[in-house]
Design a protein around this nucleic acid. Structure first.
Lengths: 125, 125
DNA sequence: TTAACATATGAGCAATTGTTCATATGAACA
DNA sequence: TGTTCATATGAACAATTGCTCATATGTTAA
């Protein structure tokens, strides 16, 4: 028994079967990773964080983050495609804002983890 | 006024100042991005998802995900360093489990976003 | 229409990342 | 002690990513 993927013999087959049955579909987990990937960049996190406070145009964000308009525009595209921001045009100016109530929750849960005091065992790592 | 970062003149200075004051420290946002980066990989998401169901040894995970022991071990290292999993040794075997109550919340909030029906405007993108 | 401007986008490049392969570590047992 | 086995780790390589630069798009005003 056991695939070629692990050389070991002590695989706990019954536990594996149980876990396999309970796990979400592969596709959902893939999408989930794709979503978190979007949150996994400092620039994008900053943009999201800024949009919590106010609707902003591309130039505002560029100015705020001290980055080029192009760089911001590229990242806004990623955020748009992930359905995290929406935009509203007013003449030449495009205003961006957050598009989802879940975003703040995801964000805050993440912050809770970050701010949690580190246990003893981790001080050693 | 305005830095060299954005060529535009219509920057909303007052809004920018307000947002700048309200935003979390740069360092916290960096750490947050680092955390989400860990969630932003299919293999790691699968590992976390599996550990929701049961404590597993490295070989179990490798078998479950049809991946090599080495690949899994490398990823467990990343998860350990992000304080997302903890390990327990029993002889030669190392059992991994989740290390944080927040993880499930982050995960579930992400799933809510994924599962949300897409709005009309996004069908066009 | 033409000029000016706000934003979007494609190509290119450097930096980062995830896997594989080979090997090291460290525990159990003969 | 030496062997076996479960896991960890370093180097190398391919794939991905985020930025820059140049330019395209689309809107406003002269």
């Amino acid at each position: 028994m056991g695939d070629e993927f692990c050389s070991c013999d002590i695989v706990h087959e019954n536990v594996i079967e149980m876990v396999k049955k309970k796990m979400p579909q592969e596709e959902k987990l893939y999408d989930l990773a794709e979503l978190f990937k979007v949150f996994g960049d400092t620039t994008r996190v900053k943009i999201i964080s800024a949009l919590f406070e106010a609707e902003l145009c591309v130039c505002d964000i560029a100015e705020l983050l001290h980055m080029t308009q192009s760089a911001i525009s590229h990242q806004l595209r990623v955020l748009r495609q992930a359905r995290l921001v929406k935009h509203r045009k007013e003449g030449k100016v495009v205003f961006y804002s957050l598009d989802d109530e879940h975003i703040k929750n995801i964000f805050n849960q993440g912050l809770k983890h970050i701010l949690e005091p580190r246990g003893f065992e981790y001080a050693l790592q």
